[in-house]
Amino acid sequence: MVRLIGILIGIGFVVVAGISLITGVITHLTTEHVEDAAHALHEEPRNYDFDHDGPFGRWNRQQLQRGFQVYKEVCASCHGLNLVAFRNLSEIGYSEAAVRAIADQWQIQVPSINPDTGEPAGRNALPADRFPNPYANETAARAANNNALPPDLSLIVKARHGGANYIASLLTGYRDPATYRDHHGQPVPEDIRPGQGLYFNPYFPNINIAMPPPITADGQVTYTDGTNPTVDQMAQDVAAFLTWTAEPNLQTRHRAGTAVLIFLIFASILAWFAYKNVWANAKRTVRVAGPLDPENMARREAAKDESGIAG
């Protein structure tokens, strides 16, 4: 009975799903297939080889400091870093005094109140403070950026497919839409070209991004460690720095993981041999010595006979 009802219900679902399927197939076959131009133009992120890549990845502290310098001089005026505290900078190699100086001299003040009047005021940052937002609120941010909202960069590397590769590709990916050719050699169609306030960048999922190219020329930042500041170098350095801001425990995690895996491999080997040891005789003779086991039953019968109790 259940089976009969089941078959009927099954036929019902199959028919309804079938209607959707057939309708879909007919639509697909009869409609003009328009290639999504934006889809065709979109580029996958390039692969850079960061020091932190892979299971044995480690931080390159020099690079992280350079990246911080790029963030500070190029990005910080529009993009916040509100999940990172100034004190965290000691993890990438700055001394305590340097951290205090960076915090104290930070261009943006931490919101506070005037201790005498109680009016809103700013104060210099302390190492314990998080990086203050460049704009008071979202409305102010949009007003200053042509209605676009510059996202906070603390987690940007984890919040975008492609991670650090995507960030570095994006920063170096701005192209002139008039002269750009995709890999089929096709030019950018008129309706895709960026309008006012937008810039063409094939690495961006929507092709046209509201951020103007932030790194425009070699030497835009002068590195304190003397590294040659090419556009590519600056983009990679800031992408590495942003990987650190998103995932500050990456190195600890990798180190702990290696230790844990080594221990677990060792424990698994022991567990395997213990298992084999316990089961060594299992297929030959393993008896549960319970009351109904034939051996015990036989023993009980024999005992009964001996004592002469009627069975």
């Binding site: 424990a267 022991l270 213990a274 316990v278 005789n281």
Partner: peptide, 26 residues
């Protein structure tokens, strides 16, 4: 002989047997 199920260490009067070392280790 049949292995009785006295537990992984099989301390049936022998104390800890050598063959149970791996069980203890695991």
């Amino acid at each position: 002989p049949a292995v009785h199920h006295e537990g992984a260490n099989g301390a049936g009067g022998d104390g800890v047997r050598r063959r149970d070392f791996i069980n203890i280790a695991a």
